[in-house]
Design a protein around this nucleic acid. Structure first.
Length: 596
RNA sequence: GCCUUGGUAGCUCAGUUGGAUAGAGCAACUGCCUUCUAAGCAGUAGGUCAUGGGUUCGAAUCCCGUCCAGGGUACCA
């Protein structure tokens, strides 16, 4: 049980015993004591004043005396205004340290066979262009919350729904047919997804030019957009695809396979993975069947032009189209099919969709539709809605060439890590392979931390000019501290200093106690991150812990300490800090280098 | 128009279920490498928490209004 809970219970008892009144747990506010004041844990007594009918000071005195007597861990107390500050004895802190020292999984709950099964959908790329910075945020968030949910004792299935069909891929296919001259990833030296993306851009260029030309000839813009030769050709390809025309399917398969090879490289670089991948080409017909069933059961209705609609006006939403007048599927239809397949494949207790906040409305509607179709899990789906990544120039737009490509970004960061490392004269005695691996860890640590430390719900700003920092509140700062801890432990081992968790110390200093307070908080932090689906909670926690350790590290010697007990204590403390930050950063998908 | 999310230091961001004097990093300026790794540490400066009201012992936090910005809004995904 955490110290906060113990104090909370004790306060409840105290109020009951002293004033004869029951109070709600929520009225007991327990918090960490301000740094500059005496004490460790503070109880706010204002809520009890009307029960005690005394001044805040006297009420706090009453409670302080009671709690000090009742709880072994509490050594003493002081009162400032309406705040009761309790001092926790060293035994409690030593217990926390021993636990976090011995248990590498400290703070983490293990899943059991009857644990809840959570499916997390993330990434969900289109196959017509490479991944960019926005996808990076999606992938990192999806991977990280999967890890965090696991750490909260749930079973997790990571899934990816690949949007491999539709007009967008046909655009790339058409452009490649027309202007590609048989170019392949091998012949061009381009990564597969970049090659296909190149033809998507090529398509758009010609398409735009055709529209301009038609408009100049006096056609209305809307008509021009529908009658430009390129778009007509792309639609023709889509029709052939749906009719399973052999050469079209063949081309589609080939180009998609190029893209998948490219994506796999990017996923591997980012360190994300999936347990199960779905393809919309395999789910959209399932969705269509479900919609037709809904129509037969009068859940949906059909208009004169044969399009199928859902009326959600009774739920405070609008009319929503589910099948076009030509009978083809829309995005929503596919999501219904995908959901059905998933719930057939797994006994999912909770479904989480990691999708940008521009689709908030879509998922509101999806939940309602699934519910109407009789899927019990429909209304419980959780849309993990994250904000966009903005550039100083505004939104990322592929047409305007303002997208930040995922592969380029990572490549650039590795280069900066390498250069900076050389400048600082680090890692000179490592093998080239080990050094390269470390640069990669640092670069990705910087990128991942930069993205995950901000509240996922908010839009975030990324300035490519200034790029991502390696100093201050960053991933590398945390990795650096970790590497130094490892270095101390290596040196201790070299000197044959054995570390024991049988701790014999007279007292715990203020700085040491601050560190132990943080460590004691770790299980609660994991829970909070899990409850709120927020990697940022973990990131900011790790930073605070590391910052405090760095201050400690500069003020105290560890290996040079003359008192053997104190040296042993500090080695255990350093190890505990190392364990906790490694675990925390791993929940963010960030690897920790032994040296840097 | 309607729905929705946000606005905290020059910039990027934290800020626990309403609690004590508003917190970091970057950028600027000052110190500190013969001391376990200076990707570090210590310090200076920088704030009308968009704005006006309300709720109460107490508001960046909760409620209402206003301004500004982002997103969505029926055959794109």
């Amino acid at each position: 049980m955490s110290i906060e809970t113990i104090i909370q219970q004790a306060t409840l008892e105290a109020v009951k015993s002293l004033y004869g009144a029951e109070v709600n747990e929520k009225q007991v506010q327990v918090q960490n004591t301000r740094k500059d004041l005496e004490g460790d844990i503070t109880v706010v007594v204002f809520p009890f004043l009307r029960l005690s009918k005394k001044s805040p000071e006297l009420t706090a005195e009453d409670l302080g005396r009671y709690i000090t007597n009742a709880v072994d861990f509490v050594d003493s107390f002081n009162v400032i205004k309406g705040f009761l500050n309790l001092e926790i004895g060293k035994d409690y802190w030593l217990d926390v340290m021993t636990e976090s020292y011995n248990n590498l999984e400290y703070g983490v709950k293990q899943a059991s066979s009857d644990s809840e099964l959570v499916m997390v959908e993330y990434s969900s790329p289109n196959t017509n262009k490479p991944l960019h910075l926005g996808h990076i945020r999606n992938n990192l968030l999806g991977y990280s919350i999967s890890e965090i949910v696991k750490a909260n004792g749930k079973k997790v299935v990571k899934t990816n729904i690949v949007n491999d069909r539709g007009i967008h891929i046909c655009k790339s296919m058409y452009a490649w047919q027309k202007w590609g001259e048989g170019e392949t990833p091998e012949s061009s030296g381009l990564k597969g997804d970049h090659l296909v993306g190149k033809y998507y851009v090529e398509f758009d260029k010609h398409y735009k030019a055709e529209i301009t030309e038609l408009v100049e000839k006096g056609m209305a813009k809307e008509d021009a957009e529908n009658q430009a030769p390129s778009i007509i050709a792309a639609r023709e390809l889509l029709r052939k695809w749906e009719a399973k025309e052999e050469s079209t399917i063949e081309l589609w398969k080939t180009m998609n396979s190029w893209v998948y090879e490219g994506f796999d490289v990017t996923y591997k670089t980012l360190g994300v993975d999936f347990d199960k991948i779905y393809y919309e080409s395999e789910t959209y017909l399932v969705g269509k069947d479900e919609v037709l069933r809904g129509l037969a059961e009068n859940i949906f209705y059909q208009k004169e032009d044969n399009s199928v609609w859902a009326d959600l006006s009774g739920d405070g939403l609008d009319q929503k189209i589910l099948l076009r007048s030509d009978g083809t599927s829309v995005y929503m239809t596919q999501d219904i099919g995908t959901a059905k397949m998933r719930f057939n494949d797994y006994s999912i207790d909770k479904m989480v969709y990691v999708v940008g906040n521009e689709q908030n409305y879509h998922f509101q509607v999806l939940a309602k539709l699934l519910d109407k179709l009789g899927f019990s899990w429909g209304k419980d789906l959780y849309h993990f809605s994250y904000g966009m990544v903005e550039l100083p120039s505004g939104k990322m737009k592929s047409r305007e060439g303002t997208v930040v490509d995922a592969d380029d970004l990572v490549e650039g960061m590795i280069k900066v890590a390498r250069d900076m490392s050389a400048e600082l004269g680090k890692l000179d005695n490592l093998s080239e392979e080990d050094a390269e691996n470390t640069f990669r860890m640092i670069a990705l640590g910087a990128l991942k931390y930069f993205i995950l430390k901000v509240d996922p719900r908010k839009n975030m700003m990324f300035n490519p000019e200034e790029s991502i920092d390696f100093n201050g509140n960053t991933g590398p700062f945390i990795q650096y501290t970790y590497a130094r801890i490892k270095s101390v432990l290596r040196k201790a081992a070299d000197k044959n200093i054995s570390i024991s968790d049988k701790l014999v110390v007279e007292s715990v200093s203020v700085k040491e106690k601050d560190l132990l307070k943080r460590i004691a908080l770790f299980p609660a932090v994991i829970k909070e991150a899990g409850d709120n689906f927020s990697p940022a909670v973990i990131a900011n926690y790790c930073y605070e812990l590391v910052k405090e350790f760095n201050q400690f590290y500069h003020e105290h010697t560890i290996l040079g300490e003359s008192d053997e007990n104190i040296m042993n204590f500090r080695l255990v403390l350093a190890t505990s800090v190392g364990n906790v930050i490694q675990k925390g950063m791993n929940l963010l998908g960030i690897e920790m280098p032994e040296r840097m």
